[in-house]
Design a protein around this nucleic acid. Structure first.
Length: 584
RNA sequence: GCCGGAGUAGCUCAGCGGUAGAGCACUGCUUUCGUAAAGCAGGCGUCGUCGGUUCAAAUCCGACCUCCGGCUCCA
């Protein structure tokens, strides 16, 4: 089915939903009901319902549906429409907008239900709309503006066939199973504590292994890419953010300052850039030093609004895979290309194939929200576009989502559950160098201001690991697996041999545990399986005699008996090469 | 921050005015086992916090905190 046909189907289902709601709650005020990526929603004013009402609404929808032979378009005059929707201030507002824009006003009628609508419906709704399902209920601001009243939104979906609907619902279930918050608890990766504070992640030993492995990878990769590592403190004087210009924009999103006895105010750092700029400024720089690439897993704190917090994906404290590249204007595009390639290198390594770019541009109606002159904005955009063109990565544009000091390019990656993660923000920044008075001596002896590239390919540990958990469903590649192998003695008699196998593998640098509990082998396999341990090494009499272990992969595959030396070498190789396969 | 929902054992959840429950996990004993759960026994809790109503509150009411579904926001 064509995309717009699917949209028509979904938009039609939104009408059906509104009809059912009107039937059940005559005072409800339908507002807007568009199709969205995975279905549709309809927003209602003056409707107070809960999830338990959804089946009732579905039933009503099913009852109404057979009477919907078609959508009939009726053009009406402004006055007629004002009269018809006199009780619905939201529709009246839309009518006035249509009148102002000199647009025709149309009403679509299906069965007994009439709705103000510009059209785009299925041809024979009674037939087409059978496979719908209401999914959830939520609040949403009228017109998406938080100053407006809160409406009640009902989400649903519809598909041309029952098979497609079932498939979609199964996918939703899978995503639920893979939710990083659920797996994070079950696999003992991270936790939070009310005593510590919301949005502040406590990494458990197993989660910390993933964090450190990633960090080591980034350090290695970036060292090879010419980055130098630095470390900067977590707090800083308010003046630094006055210089950067962030303070007026982000004061409310920062933890309030600590006031010292001498009157000085210190903030927890919400980003690393200004600190790195201070390192740049610590001595006089020559063009010969450029590009100067300063990298740090910098820990930042942002006081995100309470309702924003979400597992590992939106937190108040996070460690960013951050770096700033100081370079000449001529070097900027090539450096930016390298940064993009670095992203792709990381993604390839983790089997992430589904990603695209989003370019954040200024909202042309709100130019006073941004700093810097027209020329600077145009040039920054141009330099970044030049880089993107070379890489042929799909890019969409989004007006209004630039930083206050320049356009930006975000990488959006999609996990195997379909969830999208905005993972890294990149910029060619022609503004902050000036603002911080950064200089270098050029060939001709003149002082010039460096261009600054901001980049963080792996985003923050928190969000990136949140992504990885869902992407792999907890089945991490061997190099990231907190426990790489479990030795399972089939009875207590082989406990000693199991310990010896563990020692041998430990010597090879692997993370191995022995499950020495007084349980049946089947139970131990089940538990290792639930912990998603890549290798289960079963040992009994045969293995003890042969200095071997029977290898079961978490895929369920039984590789049979292998010499301990071979297992150690193979697993060591698999881990060291950071591949995703378990047994090449 | 806003709308809606929820907080009971480590986890999943039942109980909804009259002395706190189950399964899993945990501990002990029996069992010594060949590729996804052996059996028996035992300990398990300020029922999110504070306040109120009541002879009596996990249960009813209020405020706050935290979490969940969204909205808005994300340097």
């Amino acid at each position: 089915m064509e995309e717009n046909e699917l949209d028509e189907l979904r938009h039609s289902a939104a009408h059906l939903l509104a009809a059912a709601v009107k039937q059940l709650w005559p005072n409800a005020k339908p507002t807007l009901g568009p199709p969205i990526a995975e279905g549709f929603y309809y927003d209602f004013g003056d409707l107070k319902i809960s999830e338990e009402d959804l089946p009732k609404i579905e039933k009503e929808m099913a009852e109404i549906l057979p009477s919907w032979k078609e959508f009939k378009r009726i053009e009406v005059s402004p006055d007629e429409s004002r009269k018809e929707f006199k009780d619905n201030p939201y529709k009246l507002e839309m009518i006035e907008e249509l009148v102002n824009d000199k647009q025709k006003i149309s009403i679509y009628q299906s069965g007994d239900f009439r709705d103000l609508c510009r059209g785009g419906h299925s041809e024979s709704p009674a037939k087409d709309l059978a496979n719908f399902k209401l999914l959830s209920i939520a609040g949403a601001y009228w017109r998406g503006d938080e100053k407006n009243p809160m409406l009640t939104r009902i989400y649903g979906t519809v598909f041309p066939t029952k098979e497609e609907l079932d498939k979609y619902l199964a996918q939703r279930e899978l995503a639920k199973e893979r939710d990083h918050r659920k797996l994070g608890r079950e696999l003992e990766l991270f936790t939070t504590s009310e005593a510590v504070g919301p949005g502040l992640i406590l990494w458990l030993p197993k989660g910390n292994i993933i964090k450190e492995e990633l960090e080591n990878w980034a350090k290695e990769t970036e060292a090879a890419g010419g980055y130098q590592r630095v470390t900067t403190p977590h707090i800083t004087k308010a003046g630094l953010y006055e210089t950067s210009g962030h303070l007026p924009y982000y004061k409310d999103d920062m933890y309030p300052p600590m006031k010292l006895a001498d009157g000085e105010e210190y903030y927890l750092k919400p980003m690393n850039c200004p600190h790195h700029h201070q390192i740049y400024a610590s001595k006089s720089r020559s063009y010969r030093e450029l590009p100067l690439r300063l990298a740090e897993y910098g820990t930042c704190y942002r006081y995100e609004a309470g309702g924003e917090l979400f597992g590992l994906l939106r937190v108040r404290g996070f460690s960013q895979n951050d770096a700033h590249i100081y370079c000449t204007l001529e070097q900027a595009t090539e450096e930016f290309v390298q940064v993009m390639k670095l992203h792709e290198h990381y993604y390839r390594g983790l089997g992430i194939t589904d990603y695209y770019l989003e370019m954040g541009l200024r909202d042309p109606k709100k130019k006073d929200k941004y700093h810097g002159d027209e020329k600077m904005w145009k040039l920054a955009e141009e330099l970044m576009r030049k880089a993107v063109v070379q890489l042929k990565i799909k890019m969409i544009e989004k007006t209004g989502s630039a930083a206050f000091y320049g356009p930006k390019i975000d990488f959006i990656i999609r996990s195997s559950t379909g969830r999208e993660f905005g993972i890294s923000t990149n910029q060619i920044d022609l503004y902050m160098g000036e603002r911080f008075g950064l200089k270098y001596a050029d060939k001709d002896g003149k002082e010039k201001t460096p261009v600054i590239i901001h980049r963080a390919p792996l985003g923050s540990h928190e969000r990136f690991i949140g992504f990885l958990i869902e992407h792999f469903g907890g089945e991490f590649p061997v190099w990231l697996s907190p426990v790489q192998a479990v030795v399972i003695p089939i009875s207590e008699k082989f406990g000693e041999y199991a310990e010896k196998v563990r020692e041998d593998l430990k010597k090879a640098g692997l993370r191995v545990e022995v499950d020495g509990r007084d349980e049946k082998m089947q139970a131990k396999i089940r538990d290792a399986q639930l912990q998603k341990v890549p290798y289960m090494l079963v040992v009994g009499e045969r293995e003890e005699k042969a200095d071997s272990a029977s290898v079961r992969l978490r895929s369920g595959q039984d590789l049979g008996e292998k010499k301990v030396g071979e297992i150690a070498n193979t697993v060591k190789e698999v881990a060291a090469s950071r591949i995703i396969d378990l047994w090449p």
